[in-house]
């Protein structure tokens, strides 16, 4: 009797998790609306006052940092709150008795996270393309089109600390506490990292602090990707300095939770 029915399970799990995640309106709406809303409020009104030759760069910077903000919030809320809720639901205990290894569960989760990320950034792209000359540098050949495509994996990589931070919260907190903690964690980290208001607007002392916060390396990286500024060693060190402990902590929290509930 075969023990490798697993390959056939990846699709059913993906379908299951997609339905389970996307049929909750608040997940889709908040992912899709928030970055677009901030873009509309904080960037579009200032486009008029910006010299024409800088408008594309400003819009592009807005897309880069707000896209990252969208991915950060997706990771933090989806994993932080989603996992806390699942831990409480008896149904997820039952899922653990199904004839499957962990592979289909894990890959379905990753795939759905990517889908939600796309839901978060596609409306942003569309609004930016419609309302600003954001595509000009690409059309004119100053910037390669690959940079736009590379934004998506770049966002995901840059936001990884928040994925594991979200997991840490999800495995430790109750659903209600998770809602509060992720809200409190998100806005300050996003703001000080330069994801909402641009870093150029920060006073010197705030900018100095910002360099050491988990969202700033990502912000610098995606902004460099679209042609502004560069990434330095400090960015890399800070990114790893948040990511590695958070991975370790998240794995520990996951094992502790499994140990308490399923051993």
């Amino acid at each position: 009797m075969s023990t490798t029915a697993a390959p056939a399970l990846y699709l059913p799990h993906l379908i299951y998790r997609t339905r389970d995640t996307l049929r909750v309106p608040v997940v889709v709406i908040s992912a899709a609306v928030f970055p677009v809303m901030v873009f509309a409020i904080f960037f579009l009104p200032f486009m008029d006052g910006t010299p024409a030759d800088q408008q594309a760069a400003v819009a592009l910077a807005g897309v880069a940092q707000l896209g990252l903000m969208g991915v950060v919030s997706t990771f933090l809320f989806n994993y932080g709150i989603g996992i806390a809720e699942e831990r409480k639901a008896e149904w997820s205990n039952y899922l653990r008795t199904l004839p499957t290894g962990p592979g289909p569960f894990f890959s379905a989760r990753v795939a759905v996270a990517v889908i939600v990320v796309l839901i978060a950034v596609v409306p942003l792209f569309i609004v930016a393309m419609a309302a600003t000359p954001v595509l000009e540098p690409f059309v004119a050949g100053e910037l390669g089109w690959w940079r736009l495509a590379a934004l998506i994996p770049a966002w995901i990589l840059a936001a990884l600390p928040f994925l594991f931070g979200g997991l840490l919260i999800g495995y430790l907190a109750t659903p209600k506490a998770a809602v509060a903690i992720t809200q409190i964690a998100f806005l300050p980290f996003a703001a000080v990292g330069g994801l909402i208001l641009p870093v150029q607007a920060m006073p010197g002392w705030l900018n100095a602090i910002s360099e050491f916060t988990p969202a700033r390396p990502g912000r610098d990286a995606v902004t460099a990707l679209i042609g502004e500024g560069s990434v330095d060693m400090l960015n890399v060190v800070v990114w790893l300095g948040w990511l590695v402990p958070l991975i370790i902590a998240a794995v520990w929290a996951h094992r502790r939770d499994e140990g308490r509930r399923f051993s």
Partner: peptide, 18 residues
Amino acid sequence: TPEARRTMGVTPQATSLP
């Protein structure tokens, strides 16, 4: 193991469905 679990059908303990 999945091998053993393919022989079993289980009702979840509490009344819970997605």
